[in-house]
């Protein structure tokens, strides 16, 4: 059994008032337009339902570029209009929990309109961070290594 922690954040200055940005996170019509949206690198949403109020839940089924299916389940912990959202969520694949996260979104008037900081504290459960990774012995390892080395060489 393994447990690993990580934190990552995404910061954006947005040319819109905090009230407008906040609506994008809490309006049931607006949120899916970016959250349950097909991303350029292949994430697709199979289903999305939400009750975007404090204590409410949000559920989605996503598929990544490798067509693996993931169930997203969130619970909204705190919604401070135009200022802060805190929610927790889990990601599971084939009923196995991959990760559990605490996400904090802060909005502040500033810059060209709003400065948004999305911070996610994430804990990976049972090798969840190596989902695609299966070590099939040294031979496989050496094959991968050769391929990487050739790719590295070709890049020079």
């Amino acid at each position: 059994m393994s447990t690993e922690f990580e934190t990552f954040d995404v910061t954006r200055e947005i040319a819109a008032a905090p009230e407008t940005v906040y609506r994008l996170w809490t309006d049931p019509e607006l949120k899916p337009q970016w959250f349950a949206w097909d991303t350029p690198d292949g994430w697709h949403t199979d289903s999305y339902t939400a009750d975007l109020v404090e204590g409410g839940t949000e559920r989605a089924v996503f598929r990544n570029a490798q067509a693996s299916q993931f169930t997203y389940a969130a619970r909204l912990i705190q919604l401070r209009p135009n200022a802060r959202l805190i929610y927790s969520y889990t990601m599971a694949s084939q009923d196995q929990m991959i990760s559990a996260s605490l996400s904090t979104v802060t909005l502040a008037a500033g810059g060209k309109g709003t400065r948004l900081i999305y911070t996610e504290q994430i804990v990976f459960l049972d090798e969840g961070d190596r989902l695609e990774y299966r070590l099939a012995g040294t031979e496989d390892l050496l094959n991968r290594m050769e391929r990487h080395a050739e790719a590295a060489h070709a890049d020079v």
Binding site: E6, F8, V10, R12, I14, A15, A16, A17, T20, V21, R23, L24, W25, L30, Q33, W34, F35, W37, T39, P40, D41, W43, N64, I98, S99, G113, T114, L116, Y118, E120, I122, F124, G128, D129, R130, L131
Partner: peptide
Amino acid sequence: TWLDQQRRLWTARIDRMATLAEALE
């Protein structure tokens, strides 16, 4: 890694969210 996928996913989502917010504004 899963972390890299999530980081990329969130960066793409927030880019898209920012674009929508600016259009709405």
